[in-house]
């Protein structure tokens, strides 16, 4: 499948991936991340049950402590 991650087109093996699997494969390493799939915010407790597939647009930004 081909998806867009942070404005870059990437090819992944398989037809679907959970948000959790995708983040692991994309090396998003910090514990807290804002994730949107096709513009909708995905909460942390939804990472296992929301799946992305061909053509989806994923945006992920690390949240870093400090203020």
């Amino acid at each position: 499948m081909k998806i867009t991650v942070n404005n870059n087109e990437v090819s992944m093996a398989g037809e679907t991936l959970s948000v959790r699997e995708l983040l692991n494969q994309m090396n998003f390493t910090f514990p807290l991340i804002v994730v949107k799939v096709n513009g909708h915010l995905v909460k942390k407790e939804e990472y296992e049950r929301i799946f992305v597939g061909d053509g989806d647009n994923v945006e992920a930004i690390h949240l870093i402590s400090g203020g």
Binding site: L41, L63, I64, S65, G66, G67
Partner: peptide, 30 residues
């Protein structure tokens, strides 16, 4: 906020309850 988990809390809360409001967050400033 200072802590990243609080940043996520307010982003999720505002997105859920106030989809018409903007939120402007800070992340990475050390």
């Amino acid at each position: 906020f200072d802590a990243a988990d609080m940043k996520l809390m307010i982003i999720e809360t505002v997105s859920e309850h106030f989809p018409d409001k903007f939120i402007v967050a800070g992340s990475g400033l050390a």
